[in-house]
């Protein structure tokens, strides 16, 4: 929590936040590899940027991807749902470096099968956290059904970051380190993490992946959480069921990631 606040006192980290945001927005706008839902979303190489920036610039990437996504949204229609886009992308930039550190840390340049699996798990966790928050928020507002947006965001982030982040980091990471631009070098060393890091990591994974599954089941009418059933309210857009049903997963996810 503290590093997310204290970042704003360091001019270099403020600049890296702006750079992460601008890179994300700049690559978001022109590069569309393949449309997924015409006019709504497409497979975007830019979705790898928050993950790459997270490993390089730490918390600056979290604020940067949230701001970058907001700038990108301004060009595609901003609305109340963008608050959830902000929060989801904040997690997308925050989870990778924190989860990586919790899983042992080291250079995020995969050299063995174990490294690849670790990196892909981190990308999956970040993608699922972002997809859960965005999908939940937009369904809560009644704008887009969870199974559409949640799944599209998950796969979109997972494929773009899963393919591009390892390959790009292999080239970028050593260069950025030799330039002294890595977050841990800028703040003089890796901060000591709290005990029970792996427990928080397991909790984050449980809430992110479990919440995603729950969202799909609730929307399809296959599961109604008991804390929703007590209200006896049914909405045709499933805004109430998904909104209240996933709320504990969202709270748990944020708590685990912030404590990680």
């Amino acid at each position: 929590m503290r590093e997310l606040r204290e970042l704003w006192r360091d001019t270099r980290l403020v600049v890296f936040t702006a750079i992460s945001a601008a890179l994300y927005a700049a690559i978001l706008v022109p590069f569309k590899v393949m449309p997924i839902i015409p006019g709504v979303t497409e497979l975007r190489p830019a979705n790898a940027v928050p993950v790459i920036c997270s490993f390089l610039f730490g918390p600056a990437a979290a604020w940067g991807s949230a701001i970058g996504n907001l700038i990108g949204d301004l060009f595609g229609g901003i609305g109340p749902g963008d608050a959830f886009g902000f929060a989801g992308n904040f997690l997308y930039g925050l989870v990778p470096y924190r989860a990586w550190e919790a899983m042992g840390g080291g250079d995020p340049v995969p050299r063995s099968l174990g490294d690849w699996l670790r990196l892909l798990f981190v990308v999956l966790l970040a993608a699922a956290a972002c997809a859960l928050v965005v999908g939940w928020g937009l369904n809560l507002l009644g704008f887009v059904p969870f199974p559409v947006l949640g799944n599209v965001v998950l796969w979109n982030n997972l494929i773009a970051a899963g393919v591009l982040a390892p390959l790009t980091l292999r080239v970028l990471y050593p260069r950025v380190r030799s330039g002294g631009f890595l977050y841990f070098e800028m703040v003089s060393g890796r901060p000591r993490r709290a005990r029970g890091q792996r427990l928080w990591l397991a909790g984050a994974a449980l809430f992110a992946l479990g919440g995603h599954l729950a969202g799909n089941l609730i929307y399809a009418g296959r599961w109604l959480p008991p804390w929703v059933a007590v209200f006896d309210v049914a909405t045709p857009s499933r805004a109430f069921e998904v909104g209240v049903g996933l709320a504990p997963f969202i709270v748990g996810l944020f708590a685990c990631v912030l404590l990680l």
Binding site: I27, M34, P45, V163, V171
Partner: peptide, 20 residues
């Protein structure tokens, strides 16, 4: 799609380095 995505690595790297 994967092959197309992979071709963006030589685009992303110089843009990043220029930004840094």
């Amino acid at each position: 799609v994967l092959a197309r995505l992979r071709r963006y690595v030589p685009v992303i790297v110089p843009v990043f380095m220029g930004a840094l």
